[in-house]
């Protein structure tokens, strides 16, 4: 059974059909890349999957259960997490505090008023472990706002990891990264393959073809093709609609 499904999803903004009869199935454990030109509706799709925007019509199913009307925090608890295309962190908290918050959210122990959060050893050490995994251990004590864009992108991944979510929706994790940072991110994502189901939205074609198990191509809010990387590369329609303009 597919872990994530959308059925005939529709979403319009005024006259723009950002999501147009979008049907998609993501299999458990796969890294499913979604590519498409700017403004194709990729981010809009993610927001409907994680619940921050409601579709006008259609359904979203997670493990066969209809979650179309479920609030974002409830979907997160079911095991869906996302990273943001435009970095979305808590700028005035430290790097460690950001990650620790995600860890405590996962642990379900947030309604505690007495002990200082910084003294809860299990949470702090788990957060440090995650920071080490994305290469940010030395920056733990810094205020998040002081970090570079690339470091913010890696924090996004650490937060996604903290959730231990089965399904990760990653919206252009490579956006704005230099070649070196990009390579590091590709390695990081490769390490996650198989452990989590990942929906990866990405413009960086090298990264997409290096990582994806399957690729869907989104154009004007509609999936025009889904297949193995080799199939997508060979697809004439895709080439015309999208890959052609890149080359």
């Amino acid at each position: 059974m597919s872990i994530l499904e959308t059925r005939n999803l529709m979403k319009s903004f005024g006259g723009i059909r950002a999501t147009d009869d979008l049907t998609l199935a993501v299999e458990e454990g796969e890294l499913h890349a979604i590519i498409g030109p700017n403004g194709a509706g990729k981010t809009t799709l993610i927001t409907q999957l994680c619940g921050t925007q409601m579709p006008d019509a259609g359904q979203v199913l997670f493990k066969g259960r209809d979650i179309t009307g479920l609030a974002p925090h409830k979907r997160a608890r079911l095991g869906i997490t996302r990273s943001f295309q435009i970095t979305s962190l808590i700028a005035d908290m430290t790097v460690l505090e950001n990650i620790a918050l995600a860890v405590q959210a996962r642990a379900g122990s947030s309604f505690r008023f007495f002990r200082a959060a910084s003294s809860v050893e299990a949470i702090q050490s788990r957060a440090m472990e995650l920071l080490a995994r994305v290469g940010l251990a030395e920056k733990a004590g810094m205020v998040t706002a002081a970090l570079s864009h690339g470091e913010h992108r890696h924090m996004e991944i650490a937060i996604a990891l903290a959730s231990e979510a089965e399904l990760m929706l990653l919206d252009e994790p490579m956006a704005g990264l230099g070649p070196e940072e990009s390579a590091r991110m590709v390695e990081l994502l490769r390490g996650l393959k198989g452990k989590h189901t990942i929906v990866l939205i990405e413009h960086d074609m090298d990264a997409v073809f290096a990582l994806a198990d399957r690729i869907s191509v989104l154009v004007y809010g509609h999936i025009i093709a889904t297949g193995l990387p080799a199939e997508i590369r060979a697809n004439k329609e895709v080439e015309a609609a999208y890959l052609g303009e890149e080359a």
Partner: peptide, 24 residues
């Protein structure tokens, strides 16, 4: 300074992010 406080402060900085962590 408690875990509750972290959520409160986090929600001030970026409520959507905190909700996506699974917190109401």
């Amino acid at each position: 300074r408690s875990r509750f406080g972290m959520v409160l402060r986090g929600a001030k900085g970026n409520a959507e992010r905190v909700q996506m962590m699974g917190l109401n």
